Simulated scan of single mutants.
Amino acid sequence: MADLHSTFTEFDGTIRLPSQKKDTLRGSRNSIRKDIKKYFDEKRDKHTVSFKGQGSYMMNTTIKPISSEYDLDDGVYIFGKEEDRPNVQTAHNWIFNAVKNRTSSESLDKNTCVRVIYKSDYHVDLPIYYKTDNSNDEYALDDEIPELAHLSKGWIQSDPYAFKKWFDEQAKSRSQLKRIVRYLKAWSDKKQNDNFSLRFPSGMVFTILASNYLVENERDDISLLETLKSIQSNIDNTRFNFASYECFRPTVDKNENLLDRYSADTTKSNFLNALDSFIKSGEQAIELQSKKDACAKWQKHLGNRFPCLSINEDKSNSSARVFSSPDQLSFDNKSA
């Protein structure tokens, strides 16, 4: 059986956020924070502001995108009395005005955040929260649930920092988890880069699924395959009678099924078929004797960045095994 653990760890080194880029993102984030603090110091008498990092950057699961931009999320927390709470558009306006001159690109006011765009291939999203209990500890988990300024829904409870703390606990004793999350994100990125109309679940969904259904193994290739199979057996209700197409948040809102957003017939079938195809390729790869042949199986799903060229072996080890029922993707007819 072909052991590709070292190939997977090499792939992880290729796709994970480089330290130099991480420093660049951190520097831009800190500059934006200074702009916002200055704006509040000069223009807001009844409110103060602080920040909490959130998202994949803080959880160390960011991957290098194939063709899209890096995304950094930094929560902006406005503190004030309940009677001084602004409407959501006003809160967005404050942050937009504070950062609008930070770069030469025009900032965007989106439903859930203000976005600062950097031309060097990344952007910083600034979701805006309101709280009455001011905590100066950026790393503390407060009792009061923050409320997000959502332009279409109003003020809604949301606590992404609590999610970050939850994931930290999940990964504390399972060092393999973050690598598996990055592999799943790389798979999603590759599939959507191949077909821009294809809609896969979010990185948060893959993070939760990997955390809930991780199967640890000393080899990353086996761990990934068994984790994919565990995910499938729990969410693919088209193939398994006792599965439920569900992925609930572990934090607020715990009643929200995040897969509901991806439940349209075509979206759901494309995702579940792609998952099934990935699993079949992984099963074939594990059984092959040739590392190069096994690598090619994984590469079809993880992309050309998966380092098959670095594998050296005697051609006599190449497998001639023929699979009588190659798995198919329903949306593009590519073999596994």
Rank of each mutant, 00 (worst) to 15 (best):
residue 44 R to D: 00
residue 279 I to E: 12
residue 163 F to N: 02
residue 219 R to V: 04
residue 178 K to I: 04
residue 178 K to Q: 10
residue 61 T to W: 11
residue 103 T to Y: 13
residue 86 P to F: 01
residue 305 R to C: 07
residue 183 Y to E: 01
residue 120 S to E: 15
residue 48 T to V: 02
residue 6 S to P: 09
residue 188 S to I: 07
residue 220 D to R: 09
residue 169 E to W: 10
residue 52 K to M: 11
residue 230 S to C: 08
residue 159 D to A: 14
residue 109 D to R: 15
residue 105 S to H: 15
residue 36 I to L: 13
residue 97 N to Q: 14
residue 235 I to N: 07
residue 184 L to W: 09
residue 69 E to H: 10
residue 151 L to H: 09
residue 304 N to S: 15
residue 125 D to Q: 05
residue 329 L to I: 13
residue 20 Q to V: 06
residue 92 H to D: 01
residue 50 S to V: 04
residue 17 L to S: 15
residue 69 E to R: 15
residue 206 F to I: 01
residue 160 P to C: 02
residue 8 F to W: 04
residue 61 T to E: 14
residue 318 S to W: 05
residue 311 I to C: 12
residue 311 I to K: 10
residue 289 Q to S: 11
residue 187 W to N: 01
residue 62 T to P: 05
residue 93 N to L: 05
residue 224 L to W: 02
residue 257 N to P: 01
residue 147 E to V: 00
residue 96 F to D: 05
residue 237 N to M: 09
residue 119 K to S: 07
residue 91 A to D: 04
residue 288 L to G: 01
residue 303 G to H: 07
residue 281 S to D: 07
residue 149 A to G: 07
residue 24 T to F: 01
residue 277 S to H: 03
residue 47 H to S: 00
residue 296 A to H: 11
residue 97 N to S: 15
residue 186 A to T: 09
residue 146 P to V: 00
residue 238 T to S: 08
residue 309 L to D: 15
residue 326 P to A: 02
residue 8 F to Y: 08
residue 187 W to I: 09
residue 251 T to E: 14
residue 258 L to H: 08
residue 336 A to T: 02
residue 26 R to H: 11
residue 304 N to I: 10
residue 87 N to K: 13
residue 210 A to I: 04
residue 36 I to V: 15
residue 298 W to I: 12
residue 21 K to T: 10
residue 104 S to N: 08
residue 165 K to G: 04
residue 87 N to I: 03
residue 270 N to M: 11
residue 21 K to G: 02
residue 54 Q to R: 15
residue 1 M to A: 14
residue 260 D to M: 08
residue 293 D to E: 13
residue 220 D to Y: 05
residue 40 F to V: 00
residue 121 D to P: 10
residue 255 N to C: 08
residue 209 L to H: 01
residue 116 V to R: 00
residue 131 K to Y: 03
residue 320 A to S: 12
residue 57 Y to L: 00
residue 184 L to Q: 11
residue 104 S to L: 06
residue 144 E to N: 14
residue 215 V to I: 14
residue 183 Y to A: 10
residue 1 M to P: 13
residue 80 G to Q: 03
residue 65 P to L: 12
residue 255 N to F: 10
residue 168 D to K: 10
residue 277 S to K: 03
residue 183 Y to K: 02
residue 72 L to C: 00
residue 53 G to M: 13
residue 28 S to L: 04
residue 78 I to S: 00
residue 58 M to W: 06
residue 215 V to E: 12
residue 101 N to A: 02
residue 329 L to C: 04
residue 198 L to Y: 13
residue 202 S to Q: 07
residue 189 D to Q: 03
residue 217 N to M: 08
residue 294 A to Y: 12
residue 244 S to N: 10
residue 277 S to P: 03
residue 193 N to G: 07
residue 44 R to Q: 01
residue 125 D to E: 06
residue 151 L to F: 09
residue 149 A to Q: 05
